[in-house]
Simulated scan of single mutants.
Amino acid sequence: MRISVLGELKAEDGECIFTPHATKPRQLIALLALNANRVVSNEILIEELWHDAAVPQSAIATLQTYIFQLRMGLTYTPGCAGDRGKARERLITKPFGYQLRLGDDEFDVSEFKARISRASEAGEAGRHTKAIEYYSACIRMFRGPALIGLHTGPVLQAHARQLEELLLSVHEARVRHLLLIGRFSEAISDLSPLTVRHPLHEGLHVQMIRALSRSGRRSESLKIYQDIRRRLIDEVGIEPSVALQGAQREALCIECHAS
């Protein structure tokens, strides 16, 4: 069995697809998967499912119906082979909540985080090329924005934001290793769309300034600094961080040495 949320929601077991079609069961299985092997309280599940409407008096009974529907979907997967007992062992009723049991290889987010750990270990060992390969594999796991196409309430929205932030940190880590081994053009290519999507993200702009200046494109790097400095002052009311100012000084220093 495998559940995927790094993109469109998918729940499948081999060739058997058991992704729910209805809105609330889709939210429910996504939220249970994102809390795999942990109990999710009825309170949190109800907050997610009825965030945009008055909570009905029948909420608990309706939630139980959705759980029953998910278990029926699980029952007829190859892994359960029609055995309702096995389905109940997968999706467990607990006091005041529910728990979905998944192995690390059965959920794409668990695999994503495990790959990040391997990439980090490679980087710490100075194996920069291998770290880049691992981080690249992490990035390829996203088939689009996390939970795309899924109606989400406040709980799932928070999870989606966390995953997007984690993906962004993976991009930053990959570029950091590209810079360390002098692959400046590749770093610039990766950073260009990211700095457009995140115009106030100082870390990305630090990396872009360094990649440009170290590749000999110093005037462009200084323009990047001036542009983000103006945006930070105009939109946030702050001066650039110490890291950004340091990247600018590095570019200026390179320019002075070059002249």
Rank of each mutant, 00 (worst) to 15 (best):
M1K: 01
S4I: 08
A11F: 05
A11W: 10
D13I: 01
H21A: 13
K24S: 06
K24G: 05
L28E: 01
N37Y: 05
N42F: 03
W50G: 00
H51Y: 14
H51V: 04
T62R: 09
L63H: 05
T65H: 10
L70N: 05
C80N: 06
A81L: 03
K86A: 09
A87K: 02
R88M: 05
K94T: 00
P95I: 07
P95F: 02
Q99L: 15
D104Y: 09
E111T: 12
E121S: 14
E121G: 06
E124D: 14
Y134N: 12
Y134S: 13
C138T: 03
R140K: 15
M141K: 13
H151A: 15
G153N: 00
R161Y: 08
L167F: 12
H171A: 05
G182C: 06
R183T: 01
F184A: 09
S185M: 15
S185F: 13
A187K: 04
S189L: 11
S192V: 13
H198R: 06
P199K: 12
A211Q: 05
G216Y: 08
K223M: 14
I224G: 02
Y225G: 02
I228H: 02
R229C: 06
E235Q: 07
E235A: 00
V236R: 05
V236K: 08
G237E: 02
G246Q: 13
G246H: 13
A247Y: 07
